[in-house]
Structures are given as structure tokens and as C-alpha cells.
Simulated assay, not measured.
Amino acid sequence: MFLVLLFLCFLSLPLPAQARDLKLATWNLGWLTLRPAGDPALPDDIPRRSAVDLAHLRAYVAHLDADVIGFQEVDGETAAARLFPSPTYRLLLTNDPVVQRVGIAVKPDLTITRHDDVTALNVYPPGAPHPLRSGLDVTISDGTASLRLLVVHLKTGCWDNPPTEHAHACPTLVSQFTALEDWILERQDEGEAFAIMGDFNRRLTPTDPFFLTLLHDAPLLLTTAGYASPCWGGEYFIDHILLGGPARSWLKNNSLRVMTYTGADDTPQTTSDHCPVSIHLDLP
């Protein structure tokens, strides 16, 4: 009888909590739009994807199977829904009046709290003919742990140039990194686990002066550090995922992946000139 009672007591003990695996991905979809050729909002040389191409991309989304996908260069929710269907994903996009919008697709078992768009990333003056993109700022939660997440698409053209260069792209990127510093300082002050992911248009490394400016404000983990991307035959990363606060310890070892396109007819025009970059986190 004593052994039976001991066994029943053992069964009633609470089991240790299991960490929730969260797959984060960032993906620039390269001018994803449903507008017809000749639309005045579109350049003449952008990709023209057919219904077959969109279905093919949707299959790649299913293969990626990420819990959270931050995306760039998508022309509104209708276009995004062609790749990230409901109820598999819920969608949020910035409120920018541009074709190349930033957004996020999140699986329904996670809760999303939306914060104000980070409009400070549009460092151009009011009335500029081509405004820059805001950042999408959200908190993702599984009910136990929360992750503050900023999805960005920064100014192109300052790939690995010094920040002191006076060409138009580098001063603009410097100003955008100042806005990122401000956002990081707020997260640091609040003690939040956070991530910044997206198309930085910068070949960030642990010694890059742009990355070092962010490190002045908080310790960060550059998950792409030390690696090259196999996308379209090999290139340096410009799509990155940065982790800060407690999230730095959530990264699963060796979980960085780049999903490449394997179809015989796949080209940057029919799929995208960027490949999805993903990591796995263990949420406590």
C-alpha cells in the first residue's frame, strides 16, 4: 500500500515545463504586387508574376513552415494573402503609402499585440517623392513568454561602405540606424526580449561599424555572423535577424537556415531575388 501511494504521489507531481519552439523567418518578396503592368506606381523593370508563380511561392511558404515570417516589398494585404492564406496565417502590414510595404505573417496559436509603426525610419523630409519604409513593431506571445519584434526594410546602396561616406545612401542609413538605436534603448530600459529582422541592405558583421553603433546601447546577437548565404549561388547576408535582451539565450544552436529555390524554372523574377532566412528559438 505504501508503494502504491508513493507511485500515485509521483504521478501527481507537475511535469517540468517544455520550451516552445518558435521558428522566425525574414523574407524580402521582391516587388510582390497584383497591380497590372503599366501602373504608374510601379517601375517598368519589376518582376511580373503569373498565377502559377504565385501558387509556386505559396508552396514555398508552406515548405518554410515558420511560425512568424517578417516580409518586405509586399503591396498590401490582398497580395500578401495570396502567399500567406487564412486561417494558416494572420497578417499585419505597416500603414505606409508605398508599394513596398513591410509586414508580418503569424500562425494563429500565437497572440499579436501591435504597437505604433516606427515611422522614424522614414528619415526623409515630409513631402519627399519616395518616402522610406516604416518598421512594423509587434509583440508575439505564446501565453507564457513574449518577444518584441521589429520588422524592417532599410535604405539600399550602402552595402559595406564606411558610415562617413557622403554618397546619398550612407548618410540615410546612418540616420536609420540612429532610429534603431532609440528603439533598442527603449527595449533595454523595459527589460524586454526582442528581435529586429528584415532586409538591412547592409552586409552586417560583428565588426561592421553600423553594427557596432547598435552594440553601444545593448548587447546583441547577430545570428548571421560568420556565415554566407547560399541564395542564388552564394552571396553575403543582407537579410538579418538580431536578438537582444533575454532572447539572446533563446537561440537554438546551429538553427540558422536559408531556404533556397529548387524548381527547374525558378528565377529571381518568378520567385524572389532574396531567400528566406530563419532561426529557431526556445521560448521559456
Rank of each mutant, 00 (worst) to 15 (best):
A145Q: 10
Y261K: 12
D75S: 07
Y89T: 12
T33M: 00
H166C: 07
R20Y: 06
M1D: 12
L92I: 06
L132K: 15
E73G: 10
S278Q: 04
V106H: 11
T113G: 07
P87G: 12
V98Y: 00
I104P: 05
R114A: 13
L13G: 04
E192P: 02
D273V: 05
A120V: 05
D109R: 14
Q18F: 07
W232F: 06
G244D: 06
T111F: 10
G198Y: 00
L180H: 04
Q72T: 11
L243Y: 00
Q72D: 06
W159G: 13
A62I: 05
A51P: 15
P129R: 14
L93D: 06
C158R: 14
D109E: 14
H168Y: 09
N253A: 14
T164V: 10
A247P: 04
V106N: 11
M1N: 12
V102A: 04
F7Y: 07
I104Y: 02
N28E: 02
S175F: 01
R187H: 08
L251Y: 06
N122E: 00
P14H: 10
R202F: 06
T119W: 00
G233D: 05
A264P: 08
P162H: 14
L150D: 02
A264G: 10
F2E: 15
A225L: 01
H56Q: 15
L173E: 13
D160Q: 14
A80E: 10
L132S: 11
W232P: 04
A228K: 08
A79F: 01
F71Y: 13
T88I: 07
P47I: 02
H166V: 14
Y60F: 10
M259R: 08
L110S: 04
M1E: 11
P268E: 03
T113L: 09
L173W: 00
P219A: 05
L32D: 12
C9A: 15
E77R: 14
T94R: 05
W31D: 12
V152Y: 04
T111K: 14
Y261T: 11
P246T: 07
R148H: 13
S278F: 06
A128C: 09
P108T: 11
L147Q: 05
Q18N: 08
D142E: 03
N201Y: 04
L91H: 10
V118M: 07
F211S: 13
T144I: 12
L283R: 03
